[in-house]
Nucleic acid binder design. Sequence first.
DNA 1: GAGAAACGTCGTAAATGGTCGCCATATAGT
DNA 2: ACTATATGGCGACCATTTACGACGTTTCTC
Lengths: 332, 332
Amino acid sequence: MATIYDVSQLAGVSLATVSRVMNKNTNVSEKTKQKVLAAMAELGYRPNTFAQSLASNCSNSVGVLVSQLDGPYYGPMMAEIEAALRSDNRHVIIAVGHSDAAQEIDSVEFLLSKGCDALILDVEAISDDYLIKLSQSSTPIVLINRYIAEISDCCIYLNNELGGYMATRHLIDLGHRDIAYISGPAKKHDATERLEGHKRALAEVGVSFDPALCFEGDYKEDSGVEGMNYLFSQNKTFTAVVCANDQMVSGAISVCLERGMKIPQDLSFVGYDNIPFARYVSPKLTTVNNPIHEMGKMAALWLLKNLYKHDIEVENVFEPELVVRNSAIRKG
Amino acid sequence: MATIYDVSQLAGVSLATVSRVMNKNTNVSEKTKQKVLAAMAELGYRPNTFAQSLASNCSNSVGVLVSQLDGPYYGPMMAEIEAALRSDNRHVIIAVGHSDAAQEIDSVEFLLSKGCDALILDVEAISDDYLIKLSQSSTPIVLINRYIAEISDCCIYLNNELGGYMATRHLIDLGHRDIAYISGPAKKHDATERLEGHKRALAEVGVSFDPALCFEGDYKEDSGVEGMNYLFSQNKTFTAVVCANDQMVSGAISVCLERGMKIPQDLSFVGYDNIPFARYVSPKLTTVNNPIHEMGKMAALWLLKNLYKHDIEVENVFEPELVVRNSAIRKG
DNA sequence: GAGAAACGTCGTAAATGGTCGCCATATAGT
DNA sequence: ACTATATGGCGACCATTTACGACGTTTCTC
């Protein structure tokens, strides 16, 4: 492999000059620049990133920690992050935290030990305190899907409470009053926020929240199944169900279909997240759009702006949006 | 940040000795080893990976190139790769090729420039020749989802032809003879192989393949919609449809449902890939299992064995498996 | 039992391939 | 001619690995 030294020899200039043209330093004449570029091309020179990183103390890499890689949720986010960073010649290193505090911390340490310039974290189990302390270290972090007041500047998040409100409000506007709820795990912030929104919508029209009509799932399909079975076992009336994410809706609907029910005629459903499948499943899901990919993109742009000094605008907070399709209809 | 030098000072030994204990070199007495370990702990020492990589010419990183990150397909694969490599303290750098030759080559170059120890590639557009040449370079590669005879050792692949055969054979066994086919893009190897299997199953029972009953999609939901509309427009009889992947089945079924048809009573469907949603959609999809996550894992293990010298067994070729659920029934 | 060979343990110093500040020099503008 | 600015060279880092050799102890051999 050719080194910078070889290039400088061939081009008849010094090492520093070669380094300057690589780093787009302006103080290089066009003529020498061309000579160097030609030499690089002739040798098929490729700078050694390790040496660059060692000398410059910058790795051009950012670590991305997510809860899981399978599932429909993180793919679009990773795709946007990769695209944004890649276009600036930075690379992304991935790590998975499995929604477990110990593993999440372990992953952060891992990423740090690999010398990432910054971290993008979508973590659920790690405490606010840890994150606040981490943000004070020399490695910048940006949080997706989480709001911590003390470090709000580096938080990219969705107004989940509003989303939860919108889902239930939509059903209320459709005439429903007996609305069941299949929640995400109580330990996850977004899950409790969405539930809060649900309660607010209920309160707004004077309907009291009935804990018996609320099931705590874990955001996976199977818990939609469980949740639905639970709800039916309560022997209470309800004409609509809102689920804290689309995957649980999918599980819940499958239970109803197996019982010979018609959706949405017999029961209305509203989901959350608007994952790609929501459009193709039958009935097409009415759901709350969660612009997860945009948040991923924004996290990357945040880094481009604040760490790599690009002159761009970023926004931190995203608004949910109701996507009306066919899984919820007026109460008949 | 503490350096190896600081550690050596505190422990009262030389740099080489500290390096030796880090690299588990046996030639160091238990006593000095403990001294060094204590010093490292006291300083919170973390070796600088860039310096390590520069000196050892090994980055402990592997580049993973996939066609896309969103969609249900690559997530499980990435998850397995990450887990396997991570357990050996290696990290993965991701890149996306978008099924385009230029972008795929660009991504390979990108990954190479980042100094990956090896590459895991799931590429579709890059030519065999390029890959063969690439495999002769100093950076090992392993190919997922592709078979190239000249470099078969580093190919991890599924017997797609057999899978295509199984899908159609299942329908034949259920009494169907008029079977439509929605294919993947002709330029993708796996798509043509699956179609070959379909044709073989047909030929086996003396049914001639009717091009009018075959639509070339692009593996996405929308082309399932298109494909179904095309098939209906042909005014031909068919009692079953096999789609080259589950996403297209999803699109195809939605068209039927909108027309008021009952699935599988009016039309049987068999898919391919067995993506997670296939289990939760209604009707639950009969499909061919594509052990994509296992192939991802095996690719990682291949590297662990051949590059990082672990003593483990790996297998290259995977067999598809029919998963019978509810989207295909006996011809009525 | 003495001398030599072998071995285990550890230190020295030379890579590894860059970046970057500092300084000298060339060039251009006024 | 004087000064500001553009240009290029020199050499000190950056944090590690690793070949080589020093040194002391053990073991083998005659």
